[in-house]
């Protein structure tokens, strides 16, 4: 995607120059106003996390009168279990999910995009249909299944489905990308006697780093943010992810310690925000080309 602004060249009745300039200035004013309005809550939360406790509710400004990082220390140990446990758990679940999703989805996508086998079209159509399926429809039997396997109160129900390519969206994303890679490349490799596995491993994957990175980043963010899965499957505080930790905070001490709650909320957003800063272009392209929901 190029960022070169598309100029509307009006050939006919040209608006007077001053009117055009006024419109541009007005547009910028509107956009800047909207940006401030939208980001204000985020900045306010950030500021609140650095304020002395007694100032949080008296000030609507986004600049604290004095800075303090006490809230971070209080919040970190605000629950029976410290947030270092929750952050570790969240990282374990998210990183395992990334590995599972990238591996399993790329295998399936390679089959759909490049291999010829009977029933391919039917399976592909079925895969696309699962994209639309609300997860609630499979929720209860899945819960029963994982409970019988003894997986409740472990991370397995959150991770294993990723290794089984349950997130069909990423298969679709990768199929689209794989189809754009010239077939001459795999044909040449085939002439040299390479089998499907070698073509997948030595040609497709190395050429697909952009789409693999996009899938990895979105998997990380979605898993990191996931609240429903951990809510159902994790009941012991030592297994909690950050999102469950935050929720527990709001239920218990959070009502009295807003500073600590905001500090932990800010920290929970840091990994996502870092991805946003570093991979912004990749994320925006991913959305623009495939129409992702977030």
């Amino acid at each position: 995607m190029t960022d070169a602004p598309m100029k509307l060249t009006v050939v006919g009745a040209e608006a007077p120059a001053w009117r055009k300039r006024a419109l541009t200035i007005l547009s910028h004013a509107l956009l800047i106003g909207a940006s401030i309005l939208m980001l204000y809550p985020l900045l306010w939360m950030l500021a609140a996390s650095f304020r002395p406790e007694n100032e949080i509710f008296t000030s609507a400004s986004i600049i604290p009168s004095s800075w303090s990082i006490d809230s971070y220390f209080r919040g970190w140990n605000g629950l029976r279990t410290s947030f270092s446990v929750f952050f570790t758990n969240s990282f374990i679940v998210s990183i395992s999910s990334v590995i599972g999703n990238v591996f399993a989805c790329s295998l399936a996508a390679f089959a759909f995009a490049r291999l010829e086998f009977r029933g391919r079209k039917i399976w592909f159509a079925l895969m696309l249909m699962t994209l639309m399926l609300p997860y609630q429809v499979t929720l209860i039997p899945q819960y029963v299944l994982f409970r019988q396997l003894g997986w409740v109160d472990t991370f397995l129900p959150l991770i294993v489905p990723k290794f089984l390519a349950a997130d069909a969206f990423f298969i679709f994303l990768m199929v689209q990308f794989f189809r754009g890679i010239p077939r001459e490349l795999d044909e040449a490799a085939m002439m040299d006697g390479a089998g499907p596995w070698r073509i997948y491993w030595k040609i497709m994957l190395p050429l697909s780093t952009p789409v693999l990175a996009t899938a990895a980043i979105f998997t990380f963010i979605w898993t990191w943010d996931d609240f429903f899965g951990p809510l159902i499957y994790l009941n012991q505080m030592r297994d909690y992810t950050v999102m469950l930790g935050l929720r527990t905070f709001t239920d218990s001490t959070g009502m009295s310690d807003y500073g600590g709650l905001f500090a932990m909320s800010v920290l929970s957003l840091v990994p996502i925000f870092l991805f946003f800063l570093i991979f912004q272009r990749l994320l925006i392209e991913g959305i623009a080309t495939t129409g992702m929901k977030r």
Partner: peptide, 12 residues
């Protein structure tokens, strides 16, 4: 003919 496709799809 068919096995590689199905093997790649096995996890799915």
């Amino acid at each position: 003919q068919d096995a590689p496709g199905y093997l790649f799809l096995l996890p799915w």
